[in-house]
């Protein structure tokens, strides 16, 4: 077990008492490469990912990461653990009125106190790295523009740069391509695969597009009704599995 392994044991989440969305998930995600979670809407994919960095509070179960149980951490311990978990969102979630550069630098907020954040006392090393990351995602020329002047694909690139700015040991992506056109979706997946690959960061991505997932992922997890029903390489994901995951079959042909 390395520091880049996440082990989930018996994870349950109930938004309403007695109505579990996640019904006891057991998963171990290790090593580099992209792991895709597929499944119909409302099946708890997003909830699962958000339980890992505690944007959603798990009801029961354990999430082991770097010798800690993420499910029970509190206060400063939780914040310190979150620094090591980057996240990319479907709606990008940039701070619209700040510049692209400052959005990338917010990835460092976990390492600074509020006073430093207020005075924008980012270290020279952080600023240099932010510029490098912006170049890496192809937005070097946009550093000083406001985030709300960018297109969807550009915003998601900033979102990826912000997440990597945290120096994460794992990257979560909650439907990172669902608001983007097909071409941009492929570009965003390529970028995540490339940048995370270079840094040996494992990526867990929720995704609706099965073909896109197959193309970029080394492992696929199929969920339905709050349970894992498939776990394996893309090659072994058959139509029978897809029928089991999404239900019905008319949509397949």
């Amino acid at each position: 077990m390395t520091d880049r392994t996440i082990e989930i044991k018996g994870l349950v989440k109930e938004y309403k008492k007695g109505v579990p969305v996640l019904k006891g998930i057991d998963l171990s995600i290790e090593g580099e490469g992209i792991t895709a979670i597929i499944g119909p809407s409302g099946t708890g994919k997003s909830t699962l990912i958000r339980c890992i960095n505690r944007l959603v509070e798990p009801t029961a179960g354990e999430i082991r990461f770097q010798g800690l149980d993420l499910a029970t951490l509190k206060g400063a311990d939780l914040r310190n653990a979150r620094r090591k978990i980057g996240m990319v969102f479907q709606e990008y979630n940039l701070v619209e009125r700040l510049t692209v550069m400052e959005n990338v630098l917010t990835g460092r907020l976990g390492y600074m106190n509020a006073f430093q954040a207020w005075l924008r006392r980012f270290s020279a090393a952080d600023i240099a790295e932010a510029f490098q990351l912006l170049d890496a995602v192809g937005l070097g020329a946009f550093a000083h523009q406001r985030a709300d002047s960018l297109s969807g694909g550009q915003r998601q690139r900033v979102g990826i740069a912000r997440a990597l700015m945290q120096h994460p040991d794992i990257l979560l992506a909650d439907e990172p391509t669902s608001s983007l056109d097909p071409k941009t979706s492929v570009e965003i997946m390529e970028l995540m695969a490339e940048l995370a690959g270079k840094r040996n960061i494992p990526v867990i991505v929720n995704i609706h597009n099965v073909e896109l997932a197959k193309r970029f992922c080394h492992r696929m997890i199929g969920m339905t009704g709050g349970k894992v029903v498939f776990d394996g390489p893309p090659a072994s994901l058959s139509e029978t599995h897809l029928k089991e995951i999404y239900g019905g079959e008319d949509w397949l042909h």
């Binding site: 914040r79 310190n80 709606e91 106190n113 954040a117 979102g159």
Partner: peptide
């Protein structure tokens, strides 16, 4: 809520989230 969620995910403190989110 989005930007606030994103900053929470970076491990920022509440005060930093207020200032930047």
């Amino acid at each position: 809520r989005g930007p606030v969620e994103a900053l929470t995910a970076t491990g920022a403190s509440k005060a930093s989230i207020f200032l930047k989110g």
